[in-house]
């Protein structure tokens, strides 16, 4: 059995040499997960690319059904939330616990704004009868494969929205832990890791927005 040094900070688990090794290991693990996430969304982007290559005219017609203004607003909202997450991590690094909690709450608020706008966009489409796959009843698009575009649209934006919802849950959990005073400038690994996840959600949207909304 290894001798446990009493000088170890309490957050360091016994199988790590020191706090830095634990931090770097956690980050590496998160990056491996993010690789997994990129390839998971990659499959959906692949479907998008294949169908766009087959039916370029469909994608141009169908994109007109999407509201560029609200898509752009959501892009700005998500970039803003990425900024506040980065600010939250900075606050934790500088031992400013109040700043950490405020920035986490702003991030959650922005994420909720994103979901509300997304909800209104979905509701508008459902009213028109734009449902995915066989449930598609909209008459306004003169193309036999019109439902295919929206199948891809709902999968890409739906899985992304699911990631936003999970992100809201994770950031709220980090907020609760911050309130209990679990983080300081020596130990903020969960804040950093959750931040990486949130930035990836932002990254995916950075590609989704032009690919779905900005096709003329």
């Amino acid at each position: 059995m290894a001798n446990h040094s009493t000088s170890h900070p309490t957050h360091v688990q016994h199988h790590f040499v020191d706090s830095d090794q634990q931090f770097d290991t956690a980050k590496l693990g998160m990056w491996v997960f993010l690789v997994n996430e990129i390839l998971f969304f990659g499959g959906l982007f692949c479907a998008y690319i294949v169908y766009r290559a087959w039916y370029p005219e469909l994608f141009q017609m169908a994109a007109l059904e999407l509201n560029t203004f609200w898509g752009a607003v959501n892009t700005v909202v998500l970039i803003g939330s990425s900024l506040t997450v980065a600010m939250a991590i900075r606050s934790a690094q500088k031992n400013q616990m109040k700043g950490l909690k405020i920035n986490l709450l702003i991030t959650i608020a922005l994420a909720v704004v994103f979901m509300v706008i997304k909800g209104f966009e979905y509701a508008h489409k459902f009213e028109l009868g734009i449902f995915p796959g066989d449930f598609y009843t909209y008459e306004g698009l003169d193309h036999p494969q019109a439902n295919v575009f929206f199948g891809i649209y709902y999968m890409l934006t739906g899985v992304h929205a699911l990631h936003v919802l999970i992100g809201i849950g994770l950031i709220f959990w980090i907020y609760l832990r911050a309130r209990k005073g679990e983080f300081n400038s020596e130990y903020y690994t969960p804040v950093e890791i959750t931040g990486l996840y949130w930035h990836l959600v932002d990254l995916i949207w950075i590609f989704l927005f032009p690919l779905l909304y900005l096709i003329e």
């Binding site: 990056w31 993010l34 690789v35 390839l39 990659g42 690319i49 294949v50």
Partner: peptide, 17 residues
């Protein structure tokens, strides 16, 4: 790791296309 993800994504779409 990030570049590996991008490389395998490009491989996936290339072979599919």
């Amino acid at each position: 790791l990030l570049f590996m993800a991008v490389a395998f994504f490009i491989l996936m779409i290339s072979i599919t296309l």
